[in-house]
């Protein structure tokens, strides 16, 4: 078997993110994890959304599909159902996932689709030059809300937990080692795995900065008393700390992926199956219309 190297996952394209953008850290952690696990690039499909984070797929040499704004998760489900042998990763930002794509997020969670969802959450709209996002803090002043944000932020972790998520983790883009570990856990998890990554926007978000997170984040992984095995405790733990936590928050070891729960669904990739319908089988189906 060929060994997989970091070079295999590099593309010739120069990254278009601002210098210092948190998304560099997410890309690096993902690439490192894929190499560590020895997964060759052709076995990986990345479904990316619109926004700065959606450019992820431009910079990683896997199969990539860059879809319309907010629709990463249904597209990713389509990819997974077509070829269940692929590692399917959906990647997007907080606007893509929790504003325009919020509907799909909740439903992907409750379906427990075999997709790993990495959100690069910078609490701001970067690519459209600095509007509030659904995770922006209350009071944040931007050009589109010059008197301050009056909306209460979405709390992605507790939202996922109450919707029935079977793997919930939060990383911080400058803590590579932990983030890589969380992504590795997500990949190993059967079903939907949600890794929210606090990924600072150095250009437009002057509140949720690297320093802010370094000061505020509480590492649940380092807390010997915290066990990620109870949904109820997980919800309390993240809400008590206003979701300013990192680590594995919840993991359901009994998780059954959507594609495994579907009645009669192909165990082998549909994409490779013979799809010809036999004459006799067809006649049998037709007979029910007599």
């Amino acid at each position: 078997m060929e060994t997989v190297t970091l070079q295999d996952y590099k593309t010739s394209e120069k990254s278009w993110w601002c210098p210092g953008c948190g998304d560099f850290g997410v890309l690096a952690a993902l690439q490192k994890t894929l190499v560590k696990l020895g997964i060759p690039p052709h076995r990986v499909a990345i479904v990316a959304g619109i926004g700065c984070s959606g450019k992820m797929g431009n910079y990683i040499n896997s199969y990539n599909i860059h879809v319309v704004h907010g629709r990463t998760l249904p597209s990713a489900l389509g990819v997974k159902l077509a070829n269940r042998d692929l590692l399917v990763i959906a990647a997007g930002g907080d606007g893509d996932g929790f504003a325009i794509g919020m509907n799909h997020f909740v439903h992907a969670v409750r379906r427990n689709i075999g997709v790993k969802y990495i959100v690069m959450d910078n609490h701001i709209y970067g690519l459209t030059k600095g509007q509030n996002s659904p995770t922006s803090d209350q009071g944040q002043k931007v050009k589109a809300a010059p008197f301050g944000n009056v909306e209460s932020p979405v709390r992605p972790l507790s939202l996922a937990l109450t919707a029935g998520a079977t793997y919930v983790a939060q990383g911080f883009s400058s803590n590579q080692a932990q983030l890589a570990r969380l992504i590795e856990g997500a990949i190993a998890h059967p079903g939907f795995a949600f890794v929210n990554v606090l990924s600072p926007c150095v250009t437009y978000n002057k509140i949720n900065t690297y320093d802010f997170y370094k000061q505020m984040l509480y590492d649940l992984d380092a807390d010997k008393d915290y066990l990620p095995d109870s949904r109820g405790r997980a919800i309390s733990a993240v809400l008590e700390r206003e979701e300013l936590v990192t680590g594995l928050i919840y993991h359901d070891p009994g998780s059954v992926a959507y594609e495994d729960a579907l009645p009669g669904f192909s165990q082998e990739p549909l994409a490779g199956r013979d799809i010809t319908l036999g004459e006799a089988e067809f006649e049998e189906l037709l007979a029910s219309y007599r």
Binding site: A45, V47, I65, V67, V68, G70, R71, L73, P74, S75, A76, L77, G78, V79, K80, L81, A82, N83, L86, N103, H104, H107, P269, L270, A271, G272
Partner: peptide
Amino acid sequence: LAAITLVIGANYAGA
């Protein structure tokens, strides 16, 4: 929106 994009993902991946 989900229905059509699922279909696109599946066709992209060969089903």
